[in-house]
Every structure is written in C-alpha cells, then in structure tokens.
C-alpha cells in the first residue's frame, strides 16, 4: 500500500523581485520517508523550501499539507500544522544561550510551560551532546554544535514533517553523518517525514528513501537513491 502524501507542492512558481527562482515545480513528501532534494547553488532548492514553510509567497501553484491548502499561510500557521524547519546556515541566534534559544522556540510554538522541560529532556535524549553547552551563547559554539542546536530547536515542536535546508554546510562528512544518524533513527521510530535539501549528494542519499534533482529552478529527475547512483551522468554532475 502506498504511503499517503503529507506535504505537496503543485506547479509552484516563486522568486524574488519579479525574477522566478523556481518554475512550475511539483513535489510530494510522503509519510514516514526521507526525500532528498538535490541541486547546485541556484537550483531553487531553498526557494522551494521557503515556499513550503510559508516564508516566501509563491506566484503560482498551490501547497497542501495533509490535503489541506496552505499556500497563503504564514510560517507560524504552517508550524502549527506540525511542520518544523532547520534553515540554511546556522539556525541559531549568536547572542542567545542555547537554553534561551530553546525557550524562545517553545514560546513561539505556543508549547505550554508545563510541557517545556519534558520537551527539552526529549531532545537531549536524541542529541545528548547539547547538554554540555546548554548555557553557552550560541555564537561561541562550533559549526557542528550550532547545527545540532538548530536541529534540536526544530525537534522541540515534535514535528511530523521536518524540512532541513543544507544541514551539511561547513561540516565534515563524518560530522554530518554523526549528526544525521540520530535524526534517521528518530525518523524511523516516530514515522517522521523529512525533506532534506542537500548539495552533498553522496552523504544525503545514504539516509534518503527517494530523491529529486533540481536544476535552474526546474525538476529534472525523480526516483530512488539507488537509481540515481546508477545514473552516471547525474552522479558526475552532483
């Protein structure tokens, strides 16, 4: 039986200042899967991610979550539907401590105060290394630690759908795999759906169930990771 679609973009066109960055893109994320979005800089991966999370208004097309139209919804409304986003770059506020970032994230998500300590404990069980720097300003942490905090903050909302925008940037492959291993375990345990945007194709495909390749704002290939591995032309490109 095929898995149901939890998040879908239908013929989305979007861009900046009248210049489209993505053209007529359609993509579906199913429940309990990791979908990897691959492409070089300028392919439109992050633009699509921003549209899906309500950070950028699309010029055409529609977005649905669990079959309900969310095209015009704000990031807060999308988050309330159980979606969380790990943004590109370091998703932390340098002047705030990790504890404050978690606290602000839970406040923004409207998580009741009495539940907040349990949520933090739950995230620290998944990413225990964060315990060591909970009280440090995020600006003093290494790139890997900041990325861990960014992922941890997104998980505090206990999302059903996790959007991750190039979490490998600036990280060594080994560190990236160490970071993704607990997320993959969590995804399999909690039936999470993950949309992973990556340039680091080989590493990303190791944890993906399906892959989509984008180029210059359009989708050029969709299939299983092993099929992409067999496609010498695409593997050379990416």
């Amino acid at each position: 039986m095929s898995k149901s679609v939890v998040l879908a973009a239908h013929n989305i066109t979007a861009g900046y200042g009248g210049h489209p960055a993505i053209n007529d893109i359609s993509v579906e994320l199913r429940e309990d899967e990791v979908l990897c979005l691959i492409g070089h800089n300028g392919a439109g991966k992050s633009t699509l991610m921003k549209c899906l999370f309500g950070l950028l208004a699309s010029e055409a097309g529609s977005i649905t979550i669990d079959g309900e139209e969310t095209t015009k919804e704000t990031a807060r409304q999308v988050a309330d539907r159980g979606v969380a986003m790990v943004p590109e770059g370091r998703g932390v506020f340098p002047s705030l401590s990790v504890r404050d970032i978690f606290s602000l994230g839970m406040h923004a998500a409207g998580i009741p105060k009495k539940e907040r300590a349990d949520r933090v404990d739950w995230v620290l069980d998944i990413l225990p290394a964060i315990k060591e720097f909970m009280n440090r300003p995020a600006g003093t942490l290494s790139g890997g630690q900041q990325q861990m905090v960014s992922i941890g903050r997104a998980l505090l909302n206990r999302p059903r759908i996790l959007l991750m925008d190039e979490p490998s940037i600036g990280l060594a492959p080994k560190l990236f795999q160490d970071l993704l291993a607990p997320i993959r375990a969590l995804q399999q345990r909690e039936k999470l759906s993950i949309l992973l945007v990556e340039q680091n194709v080989r590493e990303a495909l190791k944890i993906s169930d399906r892959a989509v390749v984008m180029k210059s704002g359009s989708m050029i290939w969709e299939g299983m990771p092993e099929e992409l591995h067999d496609n010498e032309r695409l593997m050379e490109l990416y």
Binding site: F93, S103, L104, A108
Partner: peptide, 22 residues
C-alpha cells in the same frame, strides 16, 4: 520572552520568522 525576541531580531530577522515569531 519578548526581551529574548528583541535580541533575536537584532541577530537575525529572517530566522525570527523561521521560529514562527512576528
């Protein structure tokens, strides 16, 4: 929380929106 949000806005306005804040 508003004080933290003010410091957050000073750090990174785009990320504030990702957090779901206005």
């Amino acid at each position: 929380q508003m004080g933290k949000a003010l410091r957050a806005l000073a750090d990174n306005p785009e990320l504030v929106r990702v957090f779901g804040l206005n």
